[in-house]
Design a protein around this nucleic acid. Sequence first.
RNA 1: GGCGUCGUGGCCAAGUGGUAAGGCAAGGGUCUGCAAAACCCUGAACGCGGGUUCAAAUCCCGCCGACGCCUCCA
Length: 465
Amino acid sequence: MIRIYNTLTRKKEEFETIEPNEVRMYVCGVTVYSDAHVGHAMSALVFDIVRRYLMYRGYDVKFVMNFTDVDDKIIARANQNGDDPFKLAQRYIDSYAKNLEDLNVLPATSNPRATQTMKQIIKMVQELGENGYAYAPGNGDVYFRVTKDKNYGKLSGRKIEEMQAGARIEVGEQKEHPMDFALWKAAKPGEPSWESPWGKGRPGWHIECSAMNLAELGEQIDIHGGGNDLIFPHHENEIAQTESLTGKPFARYWMHNGMLQFGGEKMSKSLGNLITIDEFISKHDADVMRMLVLTGSYRAPLAFTDEAIESAEKGLDRLKSGLRPASVSAKGLPAGSAAELTAQAASSQQAFESAMDDDFNTAGAVAALFELVKAINTTRDAGATVEQIHPAQTTLRTLTGVLGLRMQEKKGSGDADKFINLLLEVRTEARKQKLWAFSDLVRDRLKELGVAIEDSKDGTTWRWS
RNA sequence: GGCGUCGUGGCCAAGUGGUAAGGCAAGGGUCUGCAAAACCCUGAACGCGGGUUCAAAUCCCGCCGACGCCUCCA
């Protein structure tokens, strides 16, 4: 039984889907006006891991992630560059899609966009108006009437009366209540706009997610995810809009990931303390970013430091060490000893599952994998054959795959292989003649070129490092 | 100020009532010409103060501290 921490109830709850064996899942994507940073990567990775695990557990997962492709910041950025806002958004959508692919994030079942959901958005705003939850003061804006919604604040644990201190009304807005928020915004000159019953305008930020959910997944979904900075106001407002319209509970489980910390603070565009996904990928294997997320806890803040990155990198190497083949000249172990390893693999798998079942405790799951790696390595060292460690390695490969790790050894160009092998042949000959200085020189120089050599009694092996 | 998350060895981090996982780093060892890798061994860690209990890192109260949200934000 899977248990999930639900932001709505502030408790871990048993996971029960609306439809048997089917999970309807929606994750808030990004507003596409600049390059995505590693904080976005964290969120994408967290929900990719959730999704992969649910799939492993036999669920058919419908996974929707949106793109906010019309918004103040996109327009501002486009104006600044003399660019077309739609083209700009498309460019960043493409680049984010590439980032996700690099990070080995499974493609969403669908990626709806605000601009392609306009009809449903307008319809929804209209219906909210008919129900008395929305009002149009006549300036072309439409607002949501929070005082009409008795449950407003239930996700973030806030009360309307207590929030008024921080609320403010922008010039030109005509809100009945300071906490009311825009469903539809009148177009200013030169802005992209759509025809609507209230004149030319564009949607407010929150309504698009409500409309896309409704269009893609229906009135009720199982899991709604996003960063915890979206709890208020974004998700609170989504709930208000959707539930005011349908009269049904919207999402069963609200999941929120913690923020990536950089220099003790949240990494964010407004603080400017960010590292883009492209930058990270250019320096590290994408698995390293995933490993960083896996060794932490998805709901807690994650420190993005050089030390943490290095630790993740080393941990990843260690996991990979479990996949190295046994020596072909290994003598083999008695059947009983080999069976012990297979039994260890089964119990590691159980430990992995019970950790993951408990609110996707990836740190505990990875620990189970490390124990499996140790068992494999020990058995290999003891002289097991390739076949004897193979079943355990298959388990390791499967479970790291559930976490979305690629576990690929680094590769150089294939052309180099034969020259490296030749060089090592020469070096082996030199070692026979005890030409240590020469042998070490070859090793050191290859190391500088990224080729790591390991001598053992069975011969010399090498790999890209 | 309000809401929330959290404080476990040098660092990251699991565990949430019954003798404290795991990874990284450190030290020692096996193997090796030397390295590397792997393996073995070592390490007086539960923020502070009360309380409940036979028993608390784990529950309750108070305090201190960190971070997030309360305004666009994954």
